[in-house]
Design a protein around this nucleic acid. Structure first.
Length: 481
DNA sequence: GTAGGGTTAG
């Protein structure tokens, strides 16, 4: 019942069992906690946790895993890590699932350093990596230069006695398709069939999206019939995935055609489908089409959700209509779809970019009153603006208070700060933040490195060397060639 | 019994 989100029914059963003197245990409560988290109802989770402790039922490893998974998927890995650390020191002992949940969280924020040190810790604690570990690693790779890395991991897993499964191939095919390397993707697809694995709907949607993006319609049709021949029915996610890829490539009218096709085939669009298409029309600035879709949504009884609003606000901002975005934002504050931290991040970013710092500052200060927690992205936006306008003491203070509030900077944020400081010619401070990248074993991004190189080429190499950590001197020297 | 990976929107 929890899995199908029939929480009222589940609560009823809980009530019945209690009435008959059958005491719920951790597994009973875990089912409810998982159900409420997947509906985003954290107050209900807190209520269950209180009830658990009142009845003397201890949370077990699964309880913590569920909580960690929720935190990681909400972009709050730092908080999940705290639970993990307390499990290491006080128990219950993390299982391979616990490691994988955190690993996936780090993968979502592309913290490769954290991923690798977690795998080291796991192996050090006597747990051998399984399929999940390898598949998470592969799916975190999303850049051209990572293809060889992925192929390496691919080989390595076989050496450890784990044969790639459908999800492994799915991740590899996805990477190749996103690089536009359709021939290589098809090679892997054929390879997987040779190994006796049955391609599923995800593999087909990935390949078909790839061919749609490059307009190879004959391959699209070929794969689509092969999918049907294998008895796989296209579903909502399948169509939405392809529509998203089309929209991102500016082929919004083709996405619209697909929308019509899915309706024609009797596959029901969901909120995500509408949001995808709305985002597409905003991207090409067709506001009348956006309006039509919103009306259409409401007319069939589908409710726009927080993401619909975020897409709208973001779209208005990107079309230079910040005041229209603010109107929507205020509607949210007053209405029943409450803004989330991402809504704030979008609005903050747009106000700062538009030079409206005072309004941004007020918005930032109001986050806590809405019961929301700022993320690295939120702080990063504010800090970069402070640097840009030269309020360096203030930016340092905000950085410190951020980390003190349990939100440690990640690699991307530190790199962004260093780039801003370099652009402002603030070498000693850039040096300080470069050292933080080093201390935390993060790596310097290509764009940061090339900025260092470019700066050195204006002839101040020696002067800069005294201000930056020695490790980065080679970038300066490249600039003097 | 309850928890984890590869396609979809901010």
């Amino acid at each position: 019942m929890c899995k199908v989100h029939a929480m009222d029914k589940a609560e009823e059963v809980l009530q019945q069992m209690t009435n008959r003197g059958i005491l719920p245990n951790s597994a009973t409560y875990n089912s409810l906690i998982h159900g409420y988290y997947s509906l985003g109802q954290c107050e209900e989770v807190d209520r269950i946790l209180m009830e658990m402790s009142r009845n003397g039922v201890q949370p077990n490893v699964v309880t913590y895993n569920i909580q960690m998974d929720y935190l990681c998927k909400s972009g709050r890995c730092a908080e999940a890590r705290k639970i993990f650390d307390s499990m290491i020191s006080l128990g219950p002992k993390p299982t391979i699932t616990t490691y994988n949940i955190l690993l996936h969280g780090y993968a979502m924020e592309k913290s490769f350093h954290d991923m690798h040190s977690l795998i080291d810790l796991m192996v050090g604690n006597g747990i051998a990596p399984d399929h999940y570990v390898y598949n998470i690693l592969i799916s975190a790779c999303d850049k051209e230069e990572m293809v060889s890395e992925v192929m390496h991991i691919f080989k390595k897993m076989r050496q450890h006695g784990l044969n790639p499964d459908v999800a492994t191939y799915g991740a590899v095919v996805n990477l190749l398709c996103s690089m536009g390397r359709m021939d290589d993707a098809m090679y892997q697809y054929n390879q997987m069939i040779t190994e006796g694995l049955a391609p599923d709907i995800i593999v087909f949607s990935t390949l078909i999206s790839g061919f749609c993006t490059c307009g190879k319609w004959e391959k699209v049709h070929e794969l689509f019939s092969e999918m049907l021949d294998r008895g796989i029915c296209p579903n909502t996610v399948f169509f939405t995935t392809i529509m998203d890829r089309l929209c991102k490539n500016g082929r919004v009218m083709e996405a619209q055609d697909l929308f019509d096709l899915m309706v024609h085939m009797g596959v029901k669009p969901d909120v995500c489908t509408y949001n995808t298409l709305i985002g597409g029309f905003l991207f090409i600035g067709k506001m009348d089409e956006v309006r039509k879709l919103l009306d259409n949504m409401v007319s069939i009884g589908m409710k726009p959700d927080v993401i619909t609003y975020n897409i709208l606000i973001d779209g208005y901002c990107k079309n230079g209509r910040i005041d229209d975005a603010l109107v929507v934002f205020r509607e949210m504050l007053a209405g029943k779809v409450k803004p989330c931290i991402i809504t704030f991040n979008i609005m903050l970013g747009a106000l700062l970019k538009g030079g409206r710092k005072e309004e941004a500052k007020d918005l930032f200060d109001g986050i806590w009153a809405k019961g929301l927690v700022p993320t690295v992205v939120t702080y990063s936006l504010m800090i970069q603006k402070l640097i840009e306008e030269g309020s360096l003491q203030e930016s340092d203070d905000l950085f410190l208070s951020m980390e003190k509030n349990g939100c440690p900077a990640n690699s991307r944020m530190l790199n962004a700060i260093v780039r801003r400081l370099l652009q402002k010619g603030e070498m000693p401070r850039a040096g300080t933040y470069l050292s933080k990248i080093d201390e935390r074993s993060f790596t310097i991004e290509a764009s940061t490195a090339s900025l260092l190189t470019a700066l050195a080429s204006v002839g101040k190499c020696q002067e800069y060397k005294g201000l930056l950590p020695e490790k980065y001197h080679s970038f300066l020297e490249q600039g003097t060639d």
